[in-house]
Structures are given as C-alpha cells and as structure tokens.
C-alpha cells in the first residue's frame, strides 16, 4: 500500500466535497437565499411543477409581484412550500409587503397553512425566494434517497465501488 497515493486520493475527495460546498454557498450568496435550488415535493403546483422537478430561486427582489411563484417557510415547520402569489399589499416605500399565496392545483388559498392564525405572509420574513428557472425531474434522486431506506446504502456502495475501481 502506498501511503502517499492513498493520502492524495483522500485529498482529492476532500477537494470534490469542498468545491461542491463552495459552489452551493456561492450560489446562496449571489441569490441571497439559504436554499438557491429546491426540489418540488408535492403536486400542489401541477401541471406546472411535478414532484422531483428542480427550481432555481432568486431573492434579491424588493417586492413580489402577483403571479410570481414563491417558496416560503412557515415558522415551526421545516418543509418549504412552493406556491403562487395571489395578492400583494405593499407600502409605497416597499418597506413592508404582505402576500397571500395559493397552489395552482389547490382549490383554496393557503391561509390554513400559515402559522399562528396569520392570514398573510410577510415578504421580508417568510419568503425564501422567487422561482426563476426550471429543470424537470432531475431532483427525483434526492426524493428517492430520502424516502427509500435502501437507497442510501446503494448510493454509498456505488461510491465505495467507484473509489475501488478507480484506483489504477
């Protein structure tokens, strides 16, 4: 066993992970949001977005427009929700904005989803970002990995195998 070779491999692996991390953080910085890329988890925006579709977010806009598709997080719940803005009310200097949202595929608006009996979302506090770009189905891998208990092992096995095979 060549120690130097093994250490170089380890260093390469670290390089791959750190560059992926840097890419993600860089994207967050540019888009001004903690999750610049999200995967659609529910069918509430069908037929526009299906489960597994990938969305690219942007959060440098001062205010949201009616019709924008926004991602928001309700306090106390971890799951981000992707829905369309149905109404907006903003102060003339754009300091405050209140939004009402609805999923295209849902019959009713989102008031029943909001926390603490609120009937509006706060643009500055609740909105994670506005959907700007779309890529279909690629995110299904992450849904598969997080929901199938064997998928994680399969992925780990594949990584281990590739590192063994890629030795020459």
């Amino acid at each position: 066993m060549n120690l130097r070779l093994e250490l170089t491999k380890l260093l390469n692996l670290c390089f791959v992970f750190s560059s992926a991390y840097m890419f993600w953080q860089g994207l967050s910085l540019v888009a001004n949001t903690h999750s610049p890329i999200v995967v659609v988890l529910s069918g509430s925006m069908e037929p526009a977005f299906q489960r597994g579709d990938i969305l690219f977010l942007w959060n440098r806009n001062q205010a949201s427009n009616v019709g924008d598709i926004v991602v928001y997080e309700v306090d106390g719940k971890q799951i981000p929700i992707v829905h369309r803005v149905l109404r907006e009310h903003h102060s003339a200097n754009f300091e405050k904005q209140y939004l009402l949202t609805k999923g295209d595929n849902n019959a009713a608006n989102d008031i029943s989803l909001y926390a603490n009996k609120k009937i509006y979302l706060n643009k500055q506090k609740d909105i994670v970002g506005t959907v700007k770009g779309y890529f279909p189905q690629l995110g299904y891998v992450t849904i598969w990995v997080s929901e199938n208990k064997y998928a994680k092992f399969a992925l780990l096995g594949l990584l281990a195998l590739s590192s063994l095979v890629g030795g020459e």
């Binding site: 019709g67 903003h90 102060s91 295209d104």
Partner: peptide, 16 residues
C-alpha cells in the same frame, strides 16, 4: 392616502 399599493387576483386559468 396612496400609502399602500395593492394588486389582487380575481380570476385565473391554466392553458395547456
């Protein structure tokens, strides 16, 4: 007083 500006949706439709 023109201090609050609003836009509301009355009707929408999905065309495929």
């Amino acid at each position: 007083k023109n201090t609050v500006i609003n836009e509301v949706t009355f009707w929408d439709n999905i065309i495929t």
